[in-house]
């Protein structure tokens, strides 16, 4: 649908900030309107990219877990195998991709903790790759306009 959601959300944020906020008289209501406008700006930034971010991240985490499967305990190997047996999500709704993402990142936390305690070059390299993915995850989710 056009105009697309980011344009509409941006226009709504502008209307709140420019037209409504100056008319609001009490400090708490001013804060509420200002934060609402900021939230719309943040939502607009995520709207177009959200599915792509989650799909890319889910693939990246799957690759890390596959690398880890030779290093970790039998229990964790089984959990990785169970996830591997399932094809990447064909349902591209944000809610479905988020569920898959949460499942993968929950297992990544456990694998990361295990890898930190392992000796050897392979474990160290995997640990560094996991940190690289965590850096990438914040870059994917980065939004402009956050206070601070």
């Amino acid at each position: 649908m056009t105009p697309d959601a980011p344009k509409v959300l941006g226009a709504l944020a502008g209307a709140l900030g420019v037209q409504v906020l100056p008319e609001v008289k009490t400090p708490f209501a001013q804060q509420t309107v200002g934060l609402s406008a900021t939230l719309l700006v943040l939502l607009a930034q995520d709207y177009d990219r959200a599915a792509a971010v989650l799909a890319e991240e889910n693939l990246a985490v799957r690759a890390l877990l596959a690398r880890a499967s030779t290093l970790v305990s039998a229990d964790q190997r089984a959990r990785i195998s169970t996830l591997d047996d399932r094809a990447p999500n064909a349902d591209l709704r944000i809610s479905a991709l988020t569920r898959e993402n949460s499942e993968l990142r929950r297992l990544l936390i456990d694998v990361h903790a295990a890898v930190e305690g392992l000796p050897g070059a392979e474990a160290r390299a995997l640990d560094e790759s996991i940190w690289q993915e965590l850096r990438s995850s914040t870059a994917r989710r980065h939004v402009e306009g956050v206070i601070g």
């Binding site: 934060l35 939230l39 995520d46 850096r135 995850s137 914040t138 956050v146």
Partner: peptide, 26 residues
Amino acid sequence: EPILAYTSWGLINRQDEILLHSMGRD
């Protein structure tokens, strides 16, 4: 209240960036 939604959309990822920086992992 919008401030509580803002914590999710505005602050959680920003805090992750700050955590990476403070751990020298950025």
